[in-house]
Nucleic acid binder design. Structure first.
Lengths: 118, 118, 118, 118
DNA sequence: GTGGTCTAGACCACA
DNA sequence: GTGGTCTAGACCACT
């Protein structure tokens, strides 16, 4: 995994994990890699992974069992919502950004189709 | 103008000015407010505005005449491009963000239309 | 290092670093001194060094790893080009300056040889 | 006459006048345009031209007769030297700049010839 | 400890 | 009055 320059690494890792969870690459209730293990794999500082897990926990996406590791929650609804919320946020932001440029949603959709075809 | 917390103020001012320029709120060849004037208006430090003007100049959107002020370039093509580039960046980022969530452009467009109707 | 009066300090530091990098006094991929460290050494404000690093980054000569420091790029081609560009700029300026005085390149070269022998 | 961006206008005008004087476009003892006249012609602020004349006077290249105007000195030696001094300064600076890049005068001359041929 | 940003306030050259 | 540079010192996010 390569990291983009202008976005905090911990956020990039968080997003990747959220994707994996929402797409069930990691099963509900499944165990995440240990912070140390993941840090080695991604070549980042263990503190950075710690922060990722801490933030995911505060979003109720994972939980920690002392001495056991970190696990994905089993509540299907929560998992269901992760993807929806992320997508919704992105779409809303997109509409706002375009309207700031005086570009209507219809025009925006037209641009989307054009760029998609390239 | 109120500033978001997570984005550097100078970038937010830059974006606002780019919008104003691309929408011709500020005429091609027109003069921007002086650094001090804009700083007072936005309640930021003159240095921050200075940086904005410097970066806009390095993007060839404005130019400065020593002791005279800072002006929008007169080249219509460049101005045309500002808006296009900004819009393009937004659309590309949108497609990328959605595809990271395993959402196809078609689905994305569907969501766009739904949210628009709300 | 002593600074000339008429040239911005940050430009003088930039040029010195470019020299050091192009002459491989600082290795490709190597780490620059931290902003604070260099600021102390040169007896300038950390902000001034910060600006130097920012501008070098915008010229793709160095890059920064968040919280880690600032590093010389590893692309040998880019490094090759720094020296060539700097030298080329100097030569072109020289020719232009001399021709403004109605001195042909041939005469210029003659003067060069004379002065060199002194 | 168009002005370069990074060099003070008054210096650019000074250099142009020195050239004209050293190349005898303006005769020894001849009269310069009035500050006002030159300012209009160059589309610059009269203060700027004033400064040019003041600096030229302090270099003993011109002198002012109250109510009469500004004139080029008649001393041929001084005029002779203007060109030589300017050229010499340029050559010395060139050698210094190149040696900073670890480029010997011989290599510098080779580059000069190459660029000249382009 | 690292760079990034920001404020406050100063001085300068230029027009 | 204009932008450009610099210092001093602070706070922040990231590693």
């Amino acid at each position: 995994m390569e990291f983009k320059k202008n976005i905090p690494i911990y956020l990039q890792i968080m997003d990747k994990l959220k994707q994996d969870i929402s797409l069930k690459v990691i099963e509900p209730g499944g165990k995440l890699m240990s912070t140390r293990e993941l840090a080695v794999k991604l070549k980042v500082n263990p503190n950075t992974v710690s922060r990722v897990y801490r933030e995911l926990e505060s979003e109720n996406i994972v939980f920690t069992k002392r001495g056991m590791g970190t696990f994905v929650v089993e509540d299907e609804n929560i998992l269901q919502n992760i993807k929806n919320n992320m997508a919704n946020d992105i779409v809303v932001k997109f509409i706002r950004d375009m309207s700031n440029l005086n570009i209507s949603p219809e025009e925006a959709i037209k641009m989307l189709k054009e760029i998609e075809e390239e």
